[in-house]
Structures are given as C-alpha cells and as structure tokens.
Write a protein that binds this DNA or RNA. Structure first.
Length: 484
RNA sequence: GGUUCCGUCGUCUAGUGGUCCAGGACGUCUGGUUCUCAUCCAGAAAAUCGCGGGUUCGACUCCCGCCGGAAUCACCA
C-alpha cells in the first residue's frame, strides 16, 4: 500500500477563516489516520494579493488546532521548498516540456485583444473560449510572455471521493494560462506540478474547483502524471442565506474564537463534524477519536450551515469534559488571559478554586470576568436588588436585617468547610422557618450581588469566612441605615 | 447565459428497497434536582423526506422530468 500524502495549500492572503479551515482538517485527519504525511505548502504565486504575516497567521491557526504538518515551512522535508515562489524553476521546466511536445505555447496576444475576443463572443452569444482564438504564430518563449496550455477538449469522466462519478463536456476545457507574464505559474498549473513532485496521493479542496477539474485532467494527461485522488469538500454556508461562508459574509478567523475563549478541542470537533460524521450518534470527539474514525466516504456532499449556537454548546461540553477527565489544573491552564483584572491580586490556587465551582456554567471563557468578578472584588451594595427579588419581595427591611444578623452569628461559629457551612445553613433554615428560596437567595445576593452564583455553601467556602461575614455585615448595615 | 454540483425537522445530521406513519444532536418549550444561573435527568412540539411522474407487491432510498439553491466561467487561488 502506498503511503498517503495529503496537503493543505493556502495562499498567504490573510487569516484562515472557518469557511476554509476544513480543507486543512480533513487532509490532516486522513494523513494522521494512515500514518501518512501531511504537507503545508504556501501558494504565494500571486504577488498582488500577498499579505505580510499571513503565513505566520496560517501556521499559528494550524498549530492551535493541533494540525501539525510533517513537511512545510519551519519543518522542512524532502520535498521542499514549500513556498511556490521558490519553486519557480520546476514550473518553467515542465511548461517548457509541454511547449516542446506541442501541448503548450507562448502567447503573445496582449490583454486588449483578449478583452476584444471576449466582447465579441459575448455579443455573438457564444461561450468565450480562448482556444477559439488561439494565435496562429507563436513566438519562442522568453520570460515576460505567458504560456498557455493547448487544450484537448473531449468528454471527461472522473471520480471524486466525495461527489462520486463526475462528468464534463469539452465546452469547459480551454487554453488556460500556465505561466503568467511575471514568470510565476498560475494556481491551475502550479498545484499540479507540486502535488506530483511532493507525491500527494489526495487532493482535497473546496467544491469551487470542481468546474475547473476537466482542465486539470487534461493537464495530468499531457504531463503523463498519475492522477491523485480528488476530494471535493462542500462549502460551509453562512448562518443566514445560502451563500458559502466567506470573509465578506463575516466569516471570523479561526483564532478569533480562541480570543473568545473557545477551546481548540471544540473548534476542531465542531468543524470536523460539520459535514462529516461516523454514522453513530456520538457528538463529542477528541482529536484522537477523530483521527481513528475519520473516513472520506462519510464526508457530506452538500453544504452545511455554520451554527454558532451549537459551537457554544459544544464548548460547554468540552469545558466539563476536560475538568472531569483531566482535572482543574488542565482546564485552568487554558483560561490564561480571561480572568478579570482584579484576579491578578489573588493566588493561582484561589483562582482554581473559583474555576472549580463555576466551570459547569461556562460556555466560553470570555464569560469569566462577569461570572467571577465578586470573587475578586467586593460588589457594590444594591439593596434594590434584594428587595425586588421575587423570593424576597415579602420580607420587610427589618426582617432582612434580622435574618442577616442571625446568619452572621451562626456563620461566625462555623468551621469553614463545605459540609459544615451547609449544616449551618440547614440549621438556619429550621431556626428561621424560612424556605430555602428566601433565606438562601438573601444570603447569596448579599455576598455576591450577582444575577446568579454557584451553590451557596460553595460560594461561601471559596469566598472565605472573613469576606463572607464582612459582606453579610455590610448589607445588614445598609438596611439598618435605611431604617433609621 | 453556458457548465457543474447540491436538495431529510428552524439548524447539523442518521438513513444505500420493507426493521422509518423517518432516529440522534443543537435550539425551543415543559417538568424534576433544598435559592439563582447553569449542569444533569425526564418529556414535548418540530420533516406530507424540494415537486411531479415512473419502476416495484413495496421508494426517503432506483429512473426520468421539473423546480429551487449554490459554485464556476481571470495572466485569483
């Protein structure tokens, strides 16, 4: 069995967004599953669209997701260089070979003339095909003149691993540009040479390349190159409408989700399963599970709409999974940079305690500041919040002050453990003859002034005895002052 | 316009001729878990399988037509 070689071949024009990252994920998974090679190749032949730093951005995204490439920039490998601009000579070499064999030609036609041909065909309502305007006299090639393929239009049948058996007629095959005026190859030509030279067994890319596949087929044939397996990946659709998700539709960069506090595990899981599933009812997959279960034939052949709600749900699942399976330390290490600024004044151990009791309501780490602020900073007292609470509406201010006083006293003599605090709270319930809804809400709000918080005994435990008592006292005093 | 691809609950999907008056998940709604928010658990609503014809004893599954959506037609990738 031949070794599987896949590649991700982005052009350095910006960040990787969620609409196109699957063409990195799937090749990675396929190679990893089969102990193959995953190559990162940078297709930088378009000088005009080149963006400084884009390659780094792309590598950063890949690293974050854990899609480690075996060959490519930073890694090297036996098939380098991995930037197309550095492979210029091989393209020229192959193009020259095609010219020598009469399968390509240097095209002296200037762009105005080409534009004229196009207009003429449009006016005549015939499809514009350059091969109908092929120049009769072609010069010897020299840099500065584009090289065109000499099409061999005929019906083409091929197999796509996702789309199945495909067919196209001669009307879509044309004299495509191989080498541009600037001496660099077009994508159409370069990727074929590179895939061949790099030994790629699978070419995975978006379905937008489907219409030009017949031209590639002709090129493989003319070059006498064994065709790799073709895998067309359907588009990810924008949340609304039916358009493919692109930067123009607000497709966020993959790493932007990292800033929001989405885990890499979630991102990989969600994106991989958008348009792929293993046929079971499993929803949560680790990278290892993805690798072992991945298969080309289970890639969906219709586009999938991107749904951020499910991503958020999945992130919650992953947060809980990591906490229960790998412990608070592992989860904590992923929260760096998300804590409220005041948290810096507290030891790591305290932040971990806080995380341990709030992690199960987290959906993304960006919620951390609003969810935990009262653990790090005394909340502003807001008596209105207490008196308007639906469980506390029937309590007079006097009663509130009295209840808080009783609580203060009881807690003062409590050993500060989860269990003991809970015992005290239960005793208080019996003594005051209040419903949990009343008493606990009261205490909870008095110490947090937050719309919600973890279980009361846990909140008090983590807050600490001194802080808890001080806050209860402060609220009690606020009501006493009110009464005076 | 030409060419090509796609079409199952709102969304992601299972389904390869009978086990499907279509299963799971997200979302929504209801109830439960000594307070809140969430988690978790239980339950509900939600798809005439794009439409119309065939083939067949029987079709979401096969065939044809139509409709709808998308992609693409560059010296961009």
């Amino acid at each position: 069995m031949t070794k599987i070689v896949t590649r991700f071949a982005p052009s350095p024009t910006g960040y990787i967004h969620i609409g196109n990252v699957r063409s990195a994920i799937y090749p990675y998974l396929l190679a990893a599953k089969n102990n193959g090679t995953f190559i990162l190749r940078i297709e930088d032949t378009d000088q005009n669209r080149y963006v400084e730093g884009a390659t780094e951005l792309i590598m950063d995204t890949l690293k974050w997701l854990g899609l480690d490439w075996n060959e490519g920039p930073e890694k090297g490998g036996d098939h380098g260089p991995y930037f197309q601009t550095e492979r210029k000579t091989s393209y020229i070499e192959y193009a020259k070979k095609l010219i020598a064999e009469g399968r390509a030609y240097a095209d002296p036609t200037d762009s105005e003339t080409i534009e004229k041909y196009r207009k003429e065909d449009e006016a005549k309502k015939v499809p514009y095909l350059y091969r109908n305007h092929r120049p009769t006299e072609t010069p010897e090639w020299q840099e500065g003149i584009p090289i065109r393929f000499k099409a061999d239009p005929k019906p083409r049948d091929w197999h796509d691993e996702v789309m199945g058996d495909l067919h196209a007629g001669p009307e879509v095959q044309d004299d495509i540009i191989l080498i541009k005026k600037d001496g660099l190859p077009t994508y159409n030509f370069a990727h074929i040479i590179d895939d061949h030279l790099m030994g790629c067994t699978h070419v995975m890319r978006g379905v937008e390349y489907l219409p030009s596949t017949p031209n590639y087929l002709a090129l493989y044939e003319a070059l006498d190159i064994e065709m790799p397996k073709l895998v067309s990946l359907p588009h990810i659709l924008a949340p609304s409408g039916n358009k493919k998700l692109g930067k123009r539709d607000g497709a966020k960069s993959v790493t932007e989700y990292r800033k929001d506090g989405i885990l890499a595990e979630t991102m990989l899981n969600y994106l991989a399963c958008l348009g792929w599933n293993d046929g079971t009812e499993q929803e949560i997959y680790s990278k290892q599970e993805l690798i072992s279960k991945f298969s080309l034939d289970r890639i969906q052949n219709s586009g999938a709409r991107y749904d951020e709600t499910k991503l958020l749900w999945m992130n919650g699942q992953w947060i809980r999974k990591i906490f229960t399976e790998q412990g608070v330390d592992t989860l904590y290490n992923k929260t760096a940079g998300f804590w409220p600024t005041e948290a810096e004044n507290y030891p790591e151990s305290y932040r971990k305690e806080v995380l341990s009791i709030i992690y199960d309501r987290l959906k993304e780490f960006s919620e951390l500041p609003s969810m935990t602020s009262y653990f790090f900073k005394d909340p502003a007292i807001n008596t209105e919040m207490l008196t308007s609470n639906k469980f506390l509406k029937n309590l007079s201010e006097q009663e509130i002050a009295r209840l808080l006083n009783t609580t203060f006293t009881a807690l003062q003599n409590t050993e500060w453990t989860e269990e003991k605090i809970q015992e005290t709270l239960n005793d208080l319930l019996a003594k005051t003859e209040k419903k949990p809804a009343e008493l606990f809400s009261l205490i909870r709000i008095a110490v947090s002034y937050a719309p919600f918080s973890p279980a009361l005994n846990l909140t008090l435990k983590v807050l600490g005895k001194d802080v808890s008592l001080a806050r209860i006292n402060a609220t009690k005093n606020a009501f006493l002052n009110d009464l005076q």
